[in-house]
Design a protein around this nucleic acid. Sequence first.
DNA 1: TTTGAGATGTTCTATATTTGAACAGTAAAT
DNA 2: ATTTACTGTTCAAATATAGAACATCTCAAA
Lengths: 245, 245
Amino acid sequence: MMSPTATKNARETSTTVSPSQTLSRGIQALEILAAAERPMTIAELASALGVHRSVAYRILRTLEDHSLLVRDDAGRVQPGAGLAVLARGVSRDLQTAALPELTQLANTLNMTAFVAVWDHQDCVTLVTVEPRHSAATLAQHPGTRHPVNTGAPGIAIQSSMSEEEWTALAPGLPYRPEAIEARKLGYAASHDEVIAGLSSLAAPIRVPGGRPAAIAVVYIRREQDHSAVGEALIASAARIEGQLA
Amino acid sequence: MMSPTATKNARETSTTVSPSQTLSRGIQALEILAAAERPMTIAELASALGVHRSVAYRILRTLEDHSLLVRDDAGRVQPGAGLAVLARGVSRDLQTAALPELTQLANTLNMTAFVAVWDHQDCVTLVTVEPRHSAATLAQHPGTRHPVNTGAPGIAIQSSMSEEEWTALAPGLPYRPEAIEARKLGYAASHDEVIAGLSSLAAPIRVPGGRPAAIAVVYIRREQDHSAVGEALIASAARIEGQLA
DNA sequence: TTTGAGATGTTCTATATTTGAACAGTAAAT
DNA sequence: ATTTACTGTTCAAATATAGAACATCTCAAA
């Protein structure tokens, strides 16, 4: 744990303030589990965390107490239902207000519709609705992340703030020129950005006190004229904002 | 040490396990935030946690580092998008397999359809799909909890295991007699249990290595004959199980 | 402008939590 | 019977944490 040359007050990691070690590890465990495809053994998780097995064990028991993870018959660990409960609190009002609009959009346009929120460098999908007859199910589940610089939702979010605001709030991330055009139109478009072969349209949602967000649709064929769909998105965004005001 | 076979019983220490204090508090903070209707100040959260303000502050910063909470302009705290990412890992295969079936059910039956999983004393809704024309949006969002003893999904889950299994896995919870009838039929029914005026039908889903779950629909009027809807649920459950095998 | 109330953010030391080696028990594979 | 690879438990040592105290900041009222 301590190296012979290291000083006691090892504050050399001066850039990041020392976070709560145990809590941070517990969250890391959840992140590893959520990213894993299959249930993991405690030993696997301990090595993934870089901690002693008995430490991982105590962390897991604590997480288990809160239903944040569960263990199968073989003792392997996987994410627990408590996480779904916690996730319900994320922009709860936005989720509630958006759902009927998404249902409406998905079924009138016959496209998958979703709401994504801005989070650091990413867009995170919060709610999605698939159309009646989803030929091929689009892998646009809630909890999906993609870079905020990529795809129509990210452009729409950028378009909802000035370039100065953007560079202040997202230092290091370039301001996409498409955002300027999107601000004029009221909606943004992208093709082949997040997933090859798919196109997306999105309109920004701004709610006071909440993170910037966007309402969007994805579709396969490349349409000549977006405007009708774009206007529908704008109208939905306005209704959602109105309900949250 | 004392006798070869009757060593110290390992289960006796289970009453007082020492959980990880900091991790437990951090999770408590998330639970409090998720349950809160509005964003909270740090001071409010500290008093809700029963800890010193500076302790709450360090916990919050750690959670913020992981996007599990965000702070608005006024410094108030609310759940962050990282929770949605973590929640995506909860029974991910079940979520993926269930979505098309739910869409199908919702639109052919014109009812809200959802999948719920068993978690300790509760049923937790994981995925929901609303029908095309949702007259009144039913408050059946993912992350919703209700007692596993209440409502059709809980009965269906009980019906998927024997009474002995149930009392072993859910000590203290009574085995509902309706579960026995549900096992014969293949699906369960309830009226006015979770929400007054609403009825529900559910069929169990068992996936090896996963928690017991159920697929269900809710509707307003009380139908005379469930059997058609019940059979549809059974068929959907079978297709989901088949895909997860 | 000054004052005060109420909030956030920072620093520091005693102490209580955590760490990780060592031990014990279990189940499957050889 | 032996090996391997797990889970679960215990304990002294040491380190991360708790909480008081201090420094700021904002906003309203005087």
